[in-house]
Protein backbone atom coordinates (compact mmCIF):
# COMPACT_ATOMS: atom_id res chain seq x y z
CA UNK A 1 0.00 0.00 0.00
CA UNK A 2 1.41 3.33 -0.97
CA UNK A 3 2.48 5.52 1.89
CA UNK A 4 2.08 8.72 -0.11
CA UNK A 5 -1.69 8.69 -0.40
CA UNK A 6 -3.55 9.68 2.73
CA UNK A 7 -5.74 6.68 3.47
CA UNK A 8 -9.48 7.33 3.50
CA UNK A 9 -9.81 5.30 6.67
CA UNK A 10 -6.90 4.58 8.96
CA UNK A 11 -7.49 2.34 11.93
CA UNK A 12 -4.57 2.35 14.31
CA UNK A 13 -4.19 -0.47 16.79
CA UNK A 14 -7.82 -0.53 17.86
CA UNK A 15 -8.69 -2.78 20.77
CA UNK A 16 -12.25 -3.06 21.98
CA UNK A 17 -13.35 -4.97 25.05
CA UNK A 18 -16.80 -5.62 26.44
CA UNK A 19 -16.31 -5.89 30.18
CA UNK A 20 -13.13 -7.97 30.23
CA UNK A 21 -13.59 -9.86 26.99
CA UNK A 22 -11.73 -8.44 24.02
CA UNK A 23 -13.79 -8.25 20.84
CA UNK A 24 -11.14 -6.65 18.69
CA UNK A 25 -7.47 -7.08 19.36
CA UNK A 26 -5.06 -4.51 18.06
CA UNK A 27 -6.64 -4.10 14.65
CA UNK A 28 -4.54 -2.08 12.27
CA UNK A 29 -6.07 -1.32 8.87
CA UNK A 30 -5.67 1.25 6.16
CA UNK A 31 -8.30 1.69 3.49
CA UNK A 32 -7.06 3.62 0.45
CA UNK A 33 -9.48 6.11 -1.09
CA UNK A 34 -11.80 4.96 -3.84
CA UNK A 35 -12.02 1.27 -3.01
CA UNK A 36 -15.02 -0.91 -2.38
CA UNK A 37 -13.89 -2.98 0.55
CA UNK A 38 -15.60 -5.89 2.24
CA UNK A 39 -15.11 -6.84 5.87
CA UNK A 40 -15.51 -10.59 6.17
CA UNK A 41 -15.07 -13.01 9.02
CA UNK A 42 -17.01 -15.54 11.04
CA UNK A 43 -19.80 -14.64 13.46
CA UNK A 44 -18.47 -12.90 16.52
CA UNK A 45 -15.36 -11.78 14.65
CA UNK A 46 -16.09 -8.18 15.57
CA UNK A 47 -17.11 -6.88 12.15
CA UNK A 48 -19.94 -4.69 13.37
CA UNK A 49 -17.88 -3.65 16.37
CA UNK A 50 -15.10 -2.51 14.05
CA UNK A 51 -17.54 -0.41 12.04
CA UNK A 52 -19.05 1.10 15.15
CA UNK A 53 -15.70 1.92 16.69
CA UNK A 54 -14.54 3.57 13.48
CA UNK A 55 -17.72 5.68 13.58
CA UNK A 56 -17.09 6.52 17.22
CA UNK A 57 -20.27 4.78 18.40
CA UNK A 58 -18.19 2.55 20.66
CA UNK A 59 -15.25 3.76 22.70
CA UNK A 60 -12.24 1.55 22.09
CA UNK A 61 -9.98 0.56 24.98
CA UNK A 62 -7.04 1.63 22.88
CA UNK A 63 -6.24 2.86 19.41
CA UNK A 64 -7.24 5.66 17.13
CA UNK A 65 -9.15 6.22 13.92
CA UNK A 66 -8.44 8.72 11.20
CA UNK A 67 -10.71 9.70 8.35
CA UNK A 68 -8.76 11.38 5.58
CA UNK A 69 -5.96 11.93 8.04
CA UNK A 70 -8.07 13.63 10.71
CA UNK A 71 -9.85 12.30 13.81
CA UNK A 72 -13.29 10.98 13.00
CA UNK A 73 -15.12 13.50 15.17
CA UNK A 74 -14.07 16.34 12.92
CA UNK A 75 -14.97 14.47 9.77
CA UNK A 76 -18.62 13.56 10.42
CA UNK A 77 -19.75 15.36 7.28
CA UNK A 78 -17.69 12.99 5.18
CA UNK A 79 -19.33 9.89 6.60
CA UNK A 80 -22.39 8.00 5.43
CA UNK A 81 -23.70 5.10 7.49
CA UNK A 82 -26.10 2.27 6.81
CA UNK A 83 -26.75 0.43 10.10
CA UNK A 84 -28.04 -3.11 10.24
CA UNK A 85 -31.64 -3.18 9.17
CA UNK A 86 -32.62 -5.06 12.30
CA UNK A 87 -31.26 -2.32 14.56
CA UNK A 88 -34.38 -0.18 14.32
CA UNK A 89 -38.09 -0.64 14.98
CA UNK A 90 -39.75 -0.57 11.58
CA UNK A 91 -43.15 -0.04 13.16
CA UNK A 92 -42.13 3.57 13.79
CA UNK A 93 -44.82 5.93 12.46
CA UNK A 94 -42.98 7.43 9.53
CA UNK A 95 -42.72 7.10 5.76
CA UNK A 96 -39.94 5.99 3.47
CA UNK A 97 -39.44 9.54 2.22
CA UNK A 98 -39.20 10.80 5.77
CA UNK A 99 -36.55 8.24 6.69
CA UNK A 100 -34.50 9.25 3.67
CA UNK A 101 -34.75 12.92 4.63
CA UNK A 102 -33.23 12.03 7.99
CA UNK A 103 -29.98 11.78 6.07
CA UNK A 104 -30.08 15.57 5.70
CA UNK A 105 -30.78 16.41 9.36
CA UNK A 106 -27.15 16.88 10.40
CA UNK A 107 -26.48 19.08 7.37
CA UNK A 108 -29.55 21.15 8.15
CA UNK A 109 -28.36 21.99 11.64
CA UNK A 110 -30.37 22.87 14.72
CA UNK A 111 -33.85 24.39 14.60
CA UNK A 112 -34.22 24.16 10.82
CA UNK A 113 -36.85 21.96 9.32
CA UNK A 114 -36.43 19.90 6.18
CA UNK A 115 -38.02 21.78 3.28
CA UNK A 116 -38.54 21.54 -0.42
CA UNK A 117 -34.87 21.10 -1.20
CA UNK A 118 -34.50 18.18 1.21
CA UNK A 119 -37.65 16.63 -0.19
CA UNK A 120 -36.26 16.84 -3.73
CA UNK A 121 -32.91 15.37 -2.71
CA UNK A 122 -34.67 12.57 -0.90
CA UNK A 123 -36.87 11.84 -3.93
CA UNK A 124 -33.78 11.71 -6.13
CA UNK A 125 -32.14 9.25 -3.75
CA UNK A 126 -35.29 7.13 -3.70
CA UNK A 127 -35.29 7.14 -7.46
CA UNK A 128 -31.71 5.88 -7.53
CA UNK A 129 -32.70 2.90 -5.42
CA UNK A 130 -35.88 2.36 -7.42
CA UNK A 131 -38.27 3.24 -4.62
CA UNK A 132 -40.07 6.33 -5.94
CA UNK A 133 -43.43 4.59 -5.85
CA UNK A 134 -43.04 3.77 -2.19
CA UNK A 135 -42.08 7.26 -0.98
CA UNK A 136 -45.22 7.74 1.06
CA UNK A 137 -45.52 4.19 2.35
CA UNK A 138 -45.30 3.60 6.04
CA UNK A 139 -42.03 1.80 6.57
CA UNK A 140 -43.45 -1.34 8.18
CA UNK A 141 -45.37 -1.99 4.96
CA UNK A 142 -42.13 -2.38 3.03
CA UNK A 143 -40.44 -5.71 2.40
CA UNK A 144 -37.00 -6.41 3.85
CA UNK A 145 -35.34 -5.56 0.57
CA UNK A 146 -37.31 -2.34 0.24
CA UNK A 147 -36.40 -1.33 3.78
CA UNK A 148 -32.76 -1.90 2.97
CA UNK A 149 -33.11 0.27 -0.14
CA UNK A 150 -34.61 3.03 1.97
CA UNK A 151 -31.65 2.85 4.34
CA UNK A 152 -29.28 3.00 1.38
CA UNK A 153 -31.15 5.99 -0.01
CA UNK A 154 -30.76 7.73 3.34
CA UNK A 155 -27.01 7.24 3.11
CA UNK A 156 -26.99 8.43 -0.51
CA UNK A 157 -28.74 11.63 0.45
CA UNK A 158 -25.91 12.28 2.92
CA UNK A 159 -23.72 12.61 -0.17
CA UNK A 160 -20.64 11.44 1.69
CA UNK A 161 -17.11 10.59 0.68
CA UNK A 162 -16.86 7.50 2.81
CA UNK A 163 -19.64 5.02 3.35
CA UNK A 164 -20.01 2.37 6.03
CA UNK A 165 -22.56 -0.36 5.40
CA UNK A 166 -23.39 -3.01 7.98
CA UNK A 167 -24.64 -6.18 6.30
CA UNK A 168 -26.65 -4.48 3.55
CA UNK A 169 -27.44 -7.85 1.97
CA UNK A 170 -28.87 -9.51 5.06
CA UNK A 171 -32.36 -10.80 4.37
CA UNK A 172 -32.88 -9.05 1.05
CA UNK A 173 -34.08 -10.53 -2.24
CA UNK A 174 -31.76 -11.19 -5.17
CA UNK A 175 -32.99 -8.21 -7.21
CA UNK A 176 -32.34 -5.85 -4.34
CA UNK A 177 -28.91 -7.35 -3.76
CA UNK A 178 -27.97 -6.75 -7.40
CA UNK A 179 -29.40 -3.24 -7.29
CA UNK A 180 -27.45 -2.39 -4.16
CA UNK A 181 -24.23 -3.78 -5.63
CA UNK A 182 -24.73 -1.68 -8.76
CA UNK A 183 -25.10 1.44 -6.63
CA UNK A 184 -22.06 0.60 -4.52
CA UNK A 185 -20.00 0.12 -7.67
CA UNK A 186 -21.30 3.35 -9.12
CA UNK A 187 -20.28 5.16 -5.93
CA UNK A 188 -16.82 3.67 -6.17
CA UNK A 189 -16.55 4.82 -9.82
CA UNK A 190 -17.27 8.32 -8.57
CA UNK A 191 -14.32 8.09 -6.20
CA UNK A 192 -16.14 7.25 -2.99
CA UNK A 193 -14.70 4.84 -0.46
CA UNK A 194 -16.92 2.08 0.89
CA UNK A 195 -16.46 -0.30 3.79
CA UNK A 196 -19.07 -3.04 3.79
CA UNK A 197 -19.67 -5.81 6.31
CA UNK A 198 -20.32 -8.86 4.17
CA UNK A 199 -21.30 -12.44 4.87
CA UNK A 200 -21.27 -14.36 1.62
CA UNK A 201 -17.83 -15.48 0.52
CA UNK A 202 -19.15 -16.80 -2.80
CA UNK A 203 -19.95 -13.28 -4.02
CA UNK A 204 -16.89 -11.64 -2.51
CA UNK A 205 -14.81 -11.44 -5.67
CA UNK A 206 -17.78 -10.47 -7.81
CA UNK A 207 -18.91 -7.54 -5.63
CA UNK A 208 -15.77 -6.15 -4.05
CA UNK A 209 -12.28 -5.18 -5.07
CA UNK A 210 -10.70 -5.01 -1.62
CA UNK A 211 -11.22 -7.09 1.46
CA UNK A 212 -10.39 -7.09 5.13
CA UNK A 213 -10.27 -10.52 6.71
CA UNK A 214 -11.20 -10.10 10.32
CA UNK A 215 -11.38 -12.47 13.22
CA UNK A 216 -10.94 -10.55 16.44
CA UNK A 217 -7.74 -9.31 14.89
CA UNK A 218 -7.05 -8.29 11.31
CA UNK A 219 -5.84 -11.39 9.49
CA UNK A 220 -5.11 -9.63 6.22
CA UNK A 221 -6.24 -6.69 4.14
CA UNK A 222 -5.72 -5.92 0.47
CA UNK A 223 -7.09 -6.52 -3.02
CA UNK A 224 -9.52 -9.44 -3.12
CA UNK A 225 -7.49 -11.40 -5.68
CA UNK A 226 -4.36 -11.46 -3.60
CA UNK A 227 -5.94 -11.44 -0.16
CA UNK A 228 -8.91 -13.80 -0.27
CA UNK A 229 -6.67 -16.79 -0.81
CA UNK A 230 -7.80 -20.19 0.42
CA UNK A 231 -5.00 -20.22 2.94
CA UNK A 232 -5.85 -16.81 4.45
CA UNK A 233 -9.57 -17.54 4.38
CA UNK A 234 -8.96 -20.79 6.19
CA UNK A 235 -7.00 -18.84 8.75
CA UNK A 236 -9.87 -16.41 9.16
CA UNK A 237 -12.57 -19.02 9.45
CA UNK A 238 -10.58 -21.93 10.86
CA UNK A 239 -11.70 -22.39 14.43
CA UNK A 240 -13.22 -19.77 16.63
CA UNK A 241 -10.18 -17.55 16.59
CA UNK A 242 -7.23 -16.37 14.61
CA UNK A 243 -3.68 -17.47 14.13
CA UNK A 244 -0.84 -15.53 15.52
CA UNK A 245 1.01 -13.16 13.18
CA UNK A 246 3.27 -14.04 10.24
CA UNK A 247 6.10 -15.79 12.04
CA UNK A 248 3.80 -18.34 13.58
CA UNK A 249 1.79 -19.04 10.45
CA UNK A 250 0.68 -22.57 9.98
CA UNK A 251 0.26 -23.40 13.60
CA UNK A 252 -3.26 -24.65 13.92
CA UNK A 253 -5.62 -23.58 16.66
CA UNK A 254 -8.68 -25.28 17.98
Amino acid sequence: MSRHVIPAIKVEDITVAYRETPVLWDVDVEVPPGVLMAVVGPNGAGKTTLLKSILGLIRPAAGRVFINGKPVNRQRRLIGYVPQRSSVDWDFPTTALDVVMMGRYAELGWFRRPGKKERELAMQALERVGMTDFANRQISQLSGGQQQRVFLARALVQDSEIYFLDEPFAGVDVTTEKAIVAILKELRERGRTLLVVHHDLSTLAEYFDWVLLLNVRAIAAGPVVTTATPELLARTYGGRSAYLGGNQAGEKVQ
Binding site: T15, E20, A61, R217, G245, G246, N247
Partner: peptide, 25 residues
Amino acid sequence: LRSARQRVLFAAQMLAVHIANHEGR
Protein backbone atom coordinates in the same frame (compact mmCIF):
# COMPACT_ATOMS: atom_id res chain seq x y z
CA LEU B 1 -11.18 -2.96 42.08
CA ARG B 2 -10.86 -5.57 39.39
CA SER B 3 -10.77 -3.05 36.62
CA ALA B 4 -8.20 -0.92 38.43
CA ARG B 5 -6.04 -3.99 38.95
CA GLN B 6 -6.63 -5.23 35.48
CA ARG B 7 -6.20 -1.96 33.67
CA VAL B 8 -2.44 -2.18 33.77
CA LEU B 9 -2.41 -5.94 33.24
CA PHE B 10 -4.83 -5.61 30.36
CA ALA B 11 -2.80 -2.80 28.86
CA ALA B 12 0.37 -4.86 29.16
CA GLN B 13 -1.39 -7.69 27.36
CA MET B 14 -2.53 -5.35 24.63
CA LEU B 15 1.02 -4.14 24.30
CA ALA B 16 2.23 -7.72 24.00
CA VAL B 17 -0.30 -8.40 21.26
CA HIS B 18 0.64 -5.18 19.53
CA ILE B 19 4.29 -6.12 19.52
CA ALA B 20 3.52 -9.66 18.43
CA ASN B 21 1.65 -8.25 15.43
CA HIS B 22 4.53 -6.07 14.31
CA GLU B 23 7.53 -8.07 15.44
CA GLY B 24 9.94 -8.93 12.68
CA ARG B 25 8.08 -6.80 10.16
